[in-house]
Write a protein that binds this DNA or RNA. Sequence first.
RNA 1: GGCGACAUAGCCAAGCGGUAAGGCGACGGUCUGCAAAACCGUUAUUCCCCGGUUCAAAUCCGGGUGUCGCCUCCA
Length: 489
Amino acid sequence: MTIRIYNTMTRQKEVFEPIEDGKVKIYSCGPTVYDYFHLGNARAFIVPDLIRRYLEFRGYEVTWVQNLTDVDDKIIKRATDEGISFEEVVSCYSKAFFEDIKKLGIKQATVYPRATEHISNIIDLIETLVSKGFAYVVGGDVFFDVSKFPSYGKLSNQDIGQLSAGARVDVDERKRNPIDFALWKSAKPGEPRWQSPWSQGRPGWHIECSAMSMTYLGETFDIHTGGQDLIFPHHENEIAQSEAATGKPFVKYWIHNGYINIDGEKMSKSLGNFFALRQIVEEYPPNVVRLFLVSSHYRSPINFSDEELNKAERSLDRLKNSVRAINEILVKGDEVGKVDEDKLDGIDSNFNHKIVEARERFINGMDDDFNTAIAISVLHDLAKEVNIFINSPEFQINPIKLSLLRNAMEAFEDFGEVLGISLIEGDSTKLEGKEEELVELLLRLRDDARKKKDWSMADAIRNGLKEIGIIVEDTPQGARWKQLNGKER
RNA sequence: GGCGACAUAGCCAAGCGGUAAGGCGACGGUCUGCAAAACCGUUAUUCCCCGGUUCAAAUCCGGGUGUCGCCUCCA
């Protein structure tokens, strides 16, 4: 049983072997805090969270570092446009970032380093690069000399000659080569600045990731993640800077997630076709958004639309209905503890086997480059088996059946924990105090009406409740209800 | 121009050499006062096209076609 990961560097799946036994170090490119993040960004934040959750499930101790870019041209522009200070922009959108990832069920990273808090690390790294001859100073700026790093382009499989020829950048005349990139930029009037050996200025974008990842994870670490659009030039540049400085391999496994598309086109700030996560979670529960994002393999593109989100919502409902059914039975009796598998027969034995099988299939799927689509199909298969089991004519509540259902419940909990999707009705579906009492009262009245075969009254109550988002379902044990928490409410 | 990804049912999506998972939807049935939920059944003789390799290909190879992306800030 080994985990296999697709490595962008080698363009194939490789067996995952961490550098240090039992421990995994992951670095992810985080947000530039100049705006609310959109669904595409959300995917890039969820993917490492998912990897982290799964690796922890498989027993690894994970250190996950995600940076915040809090000094950058776009932040400066935003501050100028809005007429507010640079600090205000950073403070506003970094706060929003943390609020939003929390909604998405992303677990806290080990550390969220900020570029401005690591200026000295960055300066040290640039000094090393200058002294080793990999970087040159022009005026107050410092550039990385790509020609000094022969393997430049190895991640994106680009040829330096081709790149130079195809460069559409406004070539800075001071660069020796068009594809050289800035490590340090001198400040223009009014821009944020830090003292350095070269000028008062700020770091270039790429260098911060090299400096911060090495500060927290060492010169060589296991996994680096990001969106596919960062492969070139950002990650290519990170490799160049880091390996030039240390002479050691920078990262063992490069993981890049696919885009979120709208009508087949990449969702992006520059195209303007983006939806902020904030907007989306106003209409759909975050769990639904998360399920939508993990229903496809992380490297595949996903097309975003209301239709797809609605499908995800119904798919999640199906899972939750099944989990709720288990819960309703579990509260009715005591379990026998661990069941003796050899003594099971008939539907018990079959059901037990299905649960065991579900765990195997879940792990096999996730082991294979984090195939969440398979993981979700396992959840659905298990839900179906649960429904069949508890609806079987032979089903009756007894300690063995309860124990088996407890096993199924634990499987749902484990899978949900790995995927970051809660299958248990949360507080959002509950009502409080008087509201709940009123609903219960109405249901008692409806029950009376039904006993008198007053169907029009019974239906009026059921329809009325539905209009305010309360779904009533009749079961042999009486009516039960739940609150819708989606946009249909 | 260079590099790369993808093309599987009405829609979404697995599968990566052994004879098409799963979800959503639709249709029929069971249950129900009616619903809902749930279950059963039907919904891809076939995986963009054309060749090739193989006993065997959606899966490998070659050639097309189409869509998208990176090469510039971008997750």
